[in-house]
Design a protein around this nucleic acid. Structure first.
Lengths: 202, 202
DNA sequence: CACGCTATCTATAACCC
DNA sequence: TGGGTTATAGATAGCGT
């Protein structure tokens, strides 16, 4: 019973305040652990109660993780049938959560496929212009919007330059993107350029 | 201190097998408890790590539950009200709930019908990290760029409208909707047509 | 079902590798 | 980041109200 009081190699779990973890590194670790914990809980819940669960998580720097039981496509396919997405580049306003998820899935698949060709940027833009961002606009707060405004201004210039100006070597390069199964990329780290934001549930 | 050993009024938590709970009643109770637990975990995770989380749960009995950080119905209406949300802070909510409910029901039906298939899947939509977009648009082809140009133009207008445009109601009013990193999860019982944070359909 | 109560079981914060 | 370890905070099964 009496723990060897002389030397506790570890302090054991300690209570923490429920607020944003300031330390970047600690936050990263906590995120990773808790994310796994959350997914585990979801797994258990679905097992114990035969429930279908889907979870999507967007980190600060817009990295996304998701969990799906039985499987994301499952719910996703259903939706694509009911609300077909004609073109990833066409703006579709009737979007809802599942649809967005589906879109994400699709984009991911494309990413997977194209990754080999080393053209992740294009995919990124695809998702960018697929409407998700535009639709989520409403979820951004004022500050975020302002920041975004600046970013867009810049992006717009770049795009315009690309269209009107001469061809620029692209380069592209490392694609630290996911593998398909469990997402791994690091977490947080930088403030996200665009606070991106929320999806919709129903 | 010494608990009356003779008769423990309660047995305390006991380990349970990780499989479908046979007893329907017990299963229902467990579902309710664990669902709350899951949502709480999600709330904590989003708070601690500034993550946006969305969870959807379809129960066996055709019920859908969801959790969303920054707020669910806000985005819900955002979508339903068509893309450009006139006034994100004073939109009339509840309008589309019936529709959403129906949609949800339909999905549930099909889910039931097509149920089982399973396995979990994780998707990494890192493509959403628009940060990379800024880097190089080099790999884009003309068509994509042009299309994007249009999209950006639209987005830009939207952003501008949000910033300079009509003053949203009482300033930041219900900012709690997308204030910072989350919206209350558990506590907070609002009686708006639809619980703002937790949306329970049916 | 929600809420309360307990004794447990489980998730994890802090640290090490 | 991915794994372990320890000790503790937190979640919850089973039972009442």
């Amino acid at each position: 019973m009496a723990p060897p009081k002389g030397k506790r190699k570890y302090l054991g779990r300690r209570k923490i305040e429920m607020k944003l973890i300031a330390d970047e590194n600690a936050r990263l670790i906590t995120f990773s652990k808790r994310r796994n914990g959350l997914f585990k809980k979801a797994t258990e819940l679905s097992t114990l109660c035969a429930a279908k669960i889907a979870i999507i998580i967007f980190t600060q720097c817009n990295r996304a993780y998701s969990f799906g039981n039985p499987n994301v496509d499952y719910v996703t396919d259903l939706f694509s049938n009911q609300f077909p997405l004609p073109n990833p580049l066409s703006f579709d306003r009737g979007t809802n959560m599942q649809q967005l998820k589906e879109r994400c899935d699709r984009i991911n698949e494309e990413l997977e496929a194209k990754k080999r060709k080393g053209k992740e940027i294009e995919e990124g833009l695809e998702s960018f212009s697929s409407g998700a961002l535009m639709e989520d606009l409403g979820a951004l707060d004022f500050a975020a919007l302002k920041e975004m405004k600046v970013k867009l201004e810049r992006l717009r210039v770049q795009v315009a330059r690309r269209i009107d100006g001469p061809e620029l070597g692209s380069g592209e390069g490392s694609s630290s993107h996911f593998a398909g199964v469990r997402v791994s990329g690091l977490e947080e780290g930088n403030e996200s350029p665009i606070p991106s934001d929320w999806l919709k549930l129903m």
